[in-house]
Nucleic acid binder design. Structure first.
Length: 434
DNA sequence: TCTGGGGTCCTAGGACCC
DNA sequence: TCTGGGGTCCTAGGACCC
């Protein structure tokens, strides 16, 4: 399934990456046009910290990841619009953008909620003009502004996209790396951490080897870097030279794990509160599992106290159950999560976070039925799950729930500033008065 | 008082096998 | 005295991504 090559591909590939500008903030603005031109920030789950900023918010110095309580006053003083994250809205807007993009290239790879690679190889048109048209159509049809970077490798396309969003190329939302005359000068001005795949750790280690910028990295010996960093860094060197090592992955690889976890709205000490939370996490995990037509071989439940709390020792623990047969039955996963919790719960602690992980997934139906654990029971479970899913699809998530989930709601996230689900919930449609 | 959630890939090292 | 070598599988941890 993986299309990673270990040798660069000499053929004349052309990759583009389309990246939505300030995606979450842009989604909110589509339905709140009065926010255009104003600073907007979107907070993480639980209204914890800043995870998306409009250009105006960046300009007044609000940092990515800043804890909200630290910037709350500043935000008020500067008239910043503050919003809780609304993943139902962002997920649906993303789907629309990707659908439009798919009409412009023979192959696309949806890389993240707001990014998509396009294979433009062999399209003999004026690619900059073509991509400007893509930007215009996406904006008109979805309301979301995007930027596009074009290059012979994914790494350079990502860099071109970044340059189109800011710096000396920002006047145009499309940048074709192959048209940049002084590309080595640009690389010399590019910090290592601005490259795809290099973060602070690798930057420090590269600095120790005397490599300080993207140009120096491009000119380094790939084999030598492989010795120090492994194959990932070797590929980055080739990709900076315009030799593609990373193919477009237009067939999504099957999921390898499913995780549902949350920080709680308030710290929890009670066993019943935690039990309700992990029961819900198990149910959500089971739903995701069925949605992807997978089954879980095991379940891990974990709990954590806050690492920032100085009044009690940090406690984190997990318990894992293995199933005799792979399952995606909500009730079975709930029971495993509850039994696991009983094992790791310690009284007199304030818990901050918990979660359920399904670490080993198999395609559903692959598992052999054992001799004594036969088909009848499993068919009944499948029918029940299909009915539950159909009801919840039709009437909205959690319309029908297990009792174990609702025994406590104290763990629910804070979402003080959440916008309506304009596009996914009929009761929350935008109202326009004329 | 208040600090996100959900993923992937790679490597090293140990166990085990022939 | 001299004590194989290579393959595979698994796991934990590191690093990175958005």
């Amino acid at each position: 399934m993986s299309s990673v090559r270990y040798r660069p591909d000499p053929s004349d590939k052309v990759f583009a990456i389309a990246d939505c500008n300030n995606f979450y903030a842009s989604c909110e603005r589509v339905f709140r046009p009065e926010l255009n031109g104003k600073p907007v920030v979107v907070l993480s789950n639980n209204d914890g910290c800043v995870i998306a900023r409009s250009n105006e918010a960046k300009a007044i110095g609000i940092k990515m990841g800043a804890p909200f309580f630290q910037i709350e006053r500043f935000a008020r003083q500067h008239g910043v619009a503050v919003l809780s994250s609304n993943y139902a809205l962002y997920g649906d807007m993303s789907r629309r953008v990707m659908q439009v993009l798919a009409g412009f290239a023979p192959r696309i790879e949806v890389y993240s909620i707001d990014e998509c690679f396009l294979d433009l190889t062999g399209l003999h048109t004026d690619l900059t003009g073509y991509c400007l048209e893509i930007c215009a159509v996406v904006k008109q049809w979805t309301g979301i502004p995007i930027s596009i970077g074009i290059a012979p490798s994914k790494t350079l396309a990502k860099l071109a996209n970044r340059l189109a969003k800011g710096g000396r190329f920002r006047q145009c939302p499309v940048l074709d790396w192959r048209t940049v005359d002084d590309s080595d000068t640009v690389l010399a001005e590019t910090a290592l951490t601005d490259l795809w795949g290099i973060a602070a750790r690798s930057q420090s280690r590269l600095n120790l080897l005397g490599i300080a910028d993207a140009l120096a990295l491009k000119q380094s010996d790939p084999k030598r870097l492989r010795g120090h960093f492994g194959v990932v860094m070797e590929r980055i060197v080739y990709e900076l030279r315009g030799l593609s090592c990373l193919d477009l992955e237009d067939v999504p690889a099957p999921r390898k794990q499913i995780l549902t976890s949350r920080s709680f709205g308030e710290k929890l000490t009670g066993y019943d509160d935690l039990r309700a939370a992990v029961t819900y996490f198990a149910t959500r995990s089971a739903e995701k599992c069925r949605q992807h037509k997978l089954a879980a071989h095991a379940l891990t439940v974990f709990v954590e106290t806050s690492p920032f709390d100085t009044r009690q020792p940090f406690y984190a623990n997990s318990a894992t159950f293995e199933f005799q047969l792979p399952t995606h039955d909500s009730a079975q996963l709930q029971r495993a999560a509850q039994r696991g919790l009983a094992r790791i719960f310690r009284p007199c602690l304030s818990y901050q976070r918990a979660g359920v992980l399904l670490p080993e997934l198999l395609p559903e139906g692959v598992a052999q039925l054992s001799l004594f654990n036969g088909g009848e029971q499993s068919n009944r479970s499948d029918e029940l799950m299909q009915t539950l899913d159909a009801i919840n699809r039709r009437y909205g998530r959690s319309s029908i729930r297990y009792a174990g989930e609702i025994l406590s709601q104290r763990w629910r996230m804070r979402q003080q500033f959440k916008s309506p689900s304009y596009t996914t919930n009929i009761h929350e449609l935008l109202t326009i008065r004329i």
